[in-house]
Design a protein around this nucleic acid. Structure first.
Lengths: 254, 254
DNA sequence: GTAGTCCGATTGTCCGGACATTCGGATTGA
DNA sequence: TCAATCCGAATGTCCGGACAATCGGACTAC
């Protein structure tokens, strides 16, 4: 009985457009990622050696390697010296990005709505001043929002921003997420420090979220930095655990 | 009045050992990382252009770029075309790894202790079977542990492992973390899917953790995969929010 | 003075090649 | 039969060079 080939080397029709301004390695990595996404490249299948792949596409090996490496970094491929490069056995989706709750809900088809409760300038408390790196009692923007999904309150978001960074329009805040506003204002987000915990709801918190006093709440604090190292946002959020949990995938750094 | 140079190009004494089996780019990236860690390379300072750095070290530019790129991926450096490469303005520590609670506590100097409550083989429930990708009612290892810090219970950990993967010695489980055991058994961890939430403690949970019934608990579910895509571990954990919260740093993918 | 333009500096992309290292199977030997 | 050895295959590392794209400051023109 002939044994079926378990991990065949897949032949794809790949091509690159040298007249395009898009980098060649990026064109290739996108095509490979699409092939994996659509199941053309099945989990476990080998990708064929780099040399031949480069020759087939008329590219150099470094370029092909750069394309493959970007997918390895995303967790979609695994390289094994002496063996080859193969597609990871699925399960991998998104390796945890610095995403906004708004975008997450929208992607999940939850039709998020936002109610801006407060949008003003206040003197910075000691906590906020320390997080944002501004002087205490200096001006900071304060935004309080209630995030709803299907008309039900899901989270209470309280955010602080350093002054002069961004015009915070209440109308815009109700139709999109804070991160998207910041990015479109030319701020390049770089990293964030997060802390996720839980605690019992105070009376005021319970009131806001439609829970009862003492009910468990999921809490998140976050400070976000841009690529110059400035803190550009500090926020304390509380979530209804029956409506929301943090789901993410993370990769092991090799 | 002479204006002090805010972001000077720093001169370091770097060197590489060509007789070492350690890759040159790795030697360089380690030295740069150490210089950043120790404050020799101050936040905001420029790194000097790649060409000259390569010439100074007797390396080629691709090698230097590979070293720099690895630090950019770690979030320690930022590159700007036409400007140069500069050290990120601090704040960056660890970009969230797939770490074990045991190692985290140990690194924080908390002297963690583990009490193994259950270490046995059981038939897989539907939930466990789905997570691990084994047949329902098939054998799986079940480990229940209580993790303590300073003698106080901090978390209750319930884990399932597919059969035949690992010898689970109760003594070893009490002196180290599960991940370390798996790694030393030759399993290369690749990624994990996590879900963090909160809920009120049941009577049994409260009893185990020394809380009262209805107290808020922080919960985490995780399925871990190796680089072949096999699920190698599934666990449901509950934490006392007064004793533990998830703290991590995450990077924005450029 | 202010706006637009030019230009040097620096990183980004890409090439073609060379050798080293590791894996896994096939061969060989006990 | 089983273990040790060899060998092909594939990725890992490294080189030296070339040109493109972009940033920021200096210069120029109005």
């Amino acid at each position: 009985m002939p044994k079926p080939d378990a991990d065949p080397t897949v032949q794809l029709d790949l091509s690159v457009d040298r007249s395009s301004p898009v980098p060649l390695y990026f064109q290739l990595s996108q095509q490979l990622e699409a092939a994996i996404e659509q199941g053309v490249l099945t989990p476990g299948s080998l990708l064929g050696n780099e040399i031949e792949l480069a020759a087939r596409l008329g590219l150099s090996r470094p370029t092909v390697r750069q394309a493959i490496q970007s997918l390895v970094d995303k967790g979609l491929l695994v390289r094994r010296r002496g063996v080859g490069t193969q597609v990871v056995h699925s399960q991998v989706k998104r390796p945890l990005e610095l995403s906004s709750l708004y975008d997450d809900l929208e992607a999940a088809g939850q039709r998020p709505a936002t109610k801006v409760l407060v949008n003003t300038v206040v003197p910075a408390s000691a906590e906020v001043a320390a997080a944002l790196g501004v002087t205490e009692d200096g001006d900071v923007h304060r935004v309080e929002r209630l995030r709803l999904a299907h008309g039900e309150p899901m989270a209470y978001l309280c955010n602080y921003l350093p002054p002069g960074l961004l015009d915070l329009d209440t109308g815009q805040l109700e139709t999109t997420g804070l991160y998207r506003l910041m990015r479109s204002a030319g701020i390049t987000l770089h990293s964030a420090r997060q802390s996720i915990g839980a605690r019992a709801a105070t009376a005021a918190e319970a009131e806001r979220l439609g829970e009862t006093e003492g009910a468990p709440l999921l809490t998140m604090q976050r400070t976000t930095f841009d690529d110059t190292g400035r803190a550009v946002e500090y926020g304390t959020h509380t979530y209804r655990p029956s409506r929301y949990s943090f789901e993410f995938q993370l990769l092991v750094r090799p």
